[in-house]
Each structure stands twice: as structure tokens, then as C-alpha cells.
Design a protein around this nucleic acid. Sequence first.
DNA 1: TTTATTTCTAGAAAAATATTCTAATATTAA
DNA 2: TTAATATTAGAATATTTTTCTAGAAATAAA
Lengths: 201, 201
Amino acid sequence: MLLNKKQDLASQLRRTKILDATLLLFSENGLSQLRIAEISKRSGASIGSIYHHFKDREGVIYALYHDSFVDCFEQLRQSILEETDAESGIKRFVVSYLQWVFENPAQASFIYAASQEEILRRHQDELHAFKSQFYLDIFSWMSPFIQSGELLALPPWAYDAIIMGPAHEFSRRWLGGLRDLSMEEAQSIIADAVWRAIHID
Amino acid sequence: MLLNKKQDLASQLRRTKILDATLLLFSENGLSQLRIAEISKRSGASIGSIYHHFKDREGVIYALYHDSFVDCFEQLRQSILEETDAESGIKRFVVSYLQWVFENPAQASFIYAASQEEILRRHQDELHAFKSQFYLDIFSWMSPFIQSGELLALPPWAYDAIIMGPAHEFSRRWLGGLRDLSMEEAQSIIADAVWRAIHID
DNA sequence: TTTATTTCTAGAAAAATATTCTAATATTAA
DNA sequence: TTAATATTAGAATATTTTTCTAGAAATAAA
């Protein structure tokens, strides 16, 4: 009753076209120059249609943020869960994130740009729920290694800062104009550094 | 001929009042809700006066970004240069940054928010010059320790990611609503982690 | 099938906001 | 004292977002 109706498909397609145009325009001119009228022109959707599907400008931005975000997190979650020892898992996590950035630079830039906006406050609860589940999964993977003394025992917030901080910092710079830096080299250097920071000999 | 004229002082004062109001309004409603008309009301400066001093809305944002940025970097530069051994220096650097964030949360938030904007592209050269000088100073401090084998020899970009990444990641979260996390605890945990990541036994 | 209901589209009208412009005032230089 | 420059003020204009109304398309009900 809910799927595969003509309207659903058309609606989904329109939504996708709007978000595709949005990402493209963001890549060209940045978030603050993103204009509804431009999205309309570029996507072929009327202004009314955009507002119908996304409520307002922030709604468009949030939808694209959300989709990109979920895509990235799912890849990360899968990666780490495939590994069975601490060192491979932690390094794979870092490498996978950088790989996602490498493969999806526009989305990655968009996430960083949008995450600075207050937009997210409006959807705080939904985002928080998603992130919480994600961190739960990661934690339950790490937990045995913390118990066994392979990984440092730290307050929960510290893992994110120590494990993901360097990759985020590098990504922001790589995306922001330093794309000639080798992502492959960065993956190995940063993964090694994180491992030194987080494990116990 | 250039200093202490009545006009310079009054002008400086007005500029300061505009930027103070801007920071306050940003703290209350975020960057995207920052309105020139509001800044005018809050600061007592007319709209014309704001445009006279800052050219346009982005000009106001850039000026505040620049001032905050310089303040932070100067404190960091001083901190590390006061230290004479590798471990104290690296740890002091991380701790000082977190301390600056702790003491200037509004400015810190503003820097993170503004750094995502394309605004900075307009002033890229000026910013780049300032940052380059800063990194030169930091590098020349680190250099002997890299030579002597106390610190890892890495490509230049890697130091920033590894040393500052965790502090930035923590700061963003702390500023974004987790202010009950102990900054003191974070300083020690993160400084230790960075040291493990960057030194050679 | 016919009719009613809901979803979607279109773009003009309205509201919100940024920017420009002109005139007046204050300060500095000549 | 006079001319030139810097600053202020806020109305007028331009840009952009958002709302609104009407109609088309799809679905559900009869």
C-alpha cells in the first residue's frame, strides 16, 4: 500500500533531483550562496515543489546533511565490525573514514559546512538517536579490548576525540584546498598515530 | 599623525561595539540568524555606520573571525615558545589551546562557525600569510626535537592533524552542548594521548 | 466509472533581509 | 577660516526567502 505507487516514485525522483542540484550548487559556491531559485532552475523543480518537499531552505540542507551522514556512518559501522582484533579494527575505522571522504568529497565538505549551522538544532533529537546507536555499536566492539587491557580505558567522550580527531582535522584541510596531499599516505600515517595514542603495549 | 586622533579613538570604539554586539548575537542565535539590523540595534551603530566600517555583512564576520583567531594564535605561540623540552612543549600546546577555548567559548564557537564559510576565501592570502608565519615559528621550535629523534619525523601537514586534531574534535563537542565535561580532565587526557602519538621512546 | 481526497506543481505575491545612496555632521588638514 | 575627509543616519532599493492560491495529477472511496 505504501510502496511503488507512481506518485511515490515520482516524488522520490524529484526529491533526489533537488538534493543533487543542491550538492552541486554547494560545491560551486558554498553554503551561504546557495539560493532556492538556483536550486529550482538547476533541478527543474518549481519553487513551490521544493518547499512542498522540504518545508524550507534549512529543510533542504538538513535532508542532504542527513543522507550523507547516514551513508558515511553505515560504511564506518560495517568496516569496524568486520575486524576482529583491536589494532586492525581501530586502524580500519580511521582508514575507512578517510576513504569515504576521498570517495565523497562533496558530501564530506557539505557535512562539515552544515554541521556548523544551527539547522541541526531543529533535528537534534533525531540526530542524537542515530549517533547514540552508532556509538553503542562501536563501543560494544571496543569493549572487550578495553577489558583485556589492549585499549586504554578512558571516559567515553575521549575515544571520539582521540580516534577521529586527527582524521577530521586532516579531512577538513584536504577538502579545503589541499587535495594534492596523498590520501593514501595520510591514511597510513594517521592510522598509525591513532593506534599509538590509544593502545597499551 | 596617525594615532590618538579623536576620530581614530571614536572609530575604534564604534568598531569594537559592533563586533561585541555581533559576537553576542552569534552566541544567541548562530551565524545564519545574524542580522545587520539587529547588530545595529544592539550596538547603537546605524546601518550606514556598520557598512562604512566593514564593507558588508561578510566583512563584519571576517573582522571578528580575524581578531579572535589572532588572539588565540598569539597565546598558543607564546605558550610553546616558553617550553624547552619536547614533552612539555607539545603538551603545553594542546593544553593551551583547550584553555583558550575554555576561557573564550564564544570566540571559539565563532571561529569554528566562520571557518566553514566561503568568506575566508576572500581573505585567503592574508590568512595564509598569518598562518604560515605561525607554523614556521612552531616548526622551528619542534625542529631540534625531530632532529634528535625525540619527535617523529613526518610530512609537515601531519603534525597539525595529529597534534591538534583531538583538541579540535573535543572542543567542537564541548562547545556544542557538552560543557559539563571537565575541561581540566580533557586537557590532561588529550595532551597525554597526543604525546603518545607523536613521540619516540 | 465517477467523485472526493490527497499529493504535488507552478509561479505570483508578500515578507524578510542585505545593500546602496544621499544628505548631514564631525573631524582633520591646509 | 576653509576645504577635504571620515563618519553617521536612515530612507530607498535590491535581493532572497517564504507564503499563498489555483490548478493538475494521483489515489481512494463510492
